[in-house]
């Protein structure tokens, strides 16, 4: 009996995209809204990639990275707002950073 074996091909590309976008969201979380935009996109893609009753492993990673990216992005936004609010009127902060 000739037996031909085709290796399983995991074609859940949306989970893969979710993972990649989630990782990018963490990287760009310190940039302007990068973490929030890409993080929420990663979470949405991870949720939509579930076609079984369980989450794909890459979708889980994408979900986690997306949530982390969103949280970091929101935190970075708050920090930037606080720094802007606490900046002296002449444009210099105590540490010497320019804010405008």
């Amino acid at each position: 009996m000739n037996e031909q074996t085709v290796h399983p091909k995991d074609d859940n590309s949306m989970a893969l995209v979710s993972m990649i976008v989630g990782i990018i969201s963490i990287v760009t979380s310190c940039c302007c809204c990068g973490g929030v935009i890409l993080g929420s996109l990663a979470v949405v893609l991870a949720c939509l990639s579930r076609v079984e009753t369980y989450f794909d492993r890459r979708a889980k990673i994408g979900l986690a990275c997306g949530i982390i990216g969103m949280v970091l992005g929101i935190a970075a936004g708050f920090v930037i707002l606080l720094l802007i609010a606490s900046a002296p009127s002449h444009g210099f902060s105590g540490s010497g950073f320019y804010f405008y």
């Binding site: 031909q4 085709v6 091909k9 079984e52």
Partner: peptide
């Protein structure tokens, strides 16, 4: 049916479909 269940229910899958296939000569 989930994709895995569909593949199992349909028996030997199509070539390239991503599932094990036992080919009868």
């Amino acid at each position: 049916l989930s994709p895995a269940q569909t593949a199992a229910a349909s028996g030997p899958a199509y070539p390239g479909g991503g599932y094990y296939r036992e080919v009868t000569p």
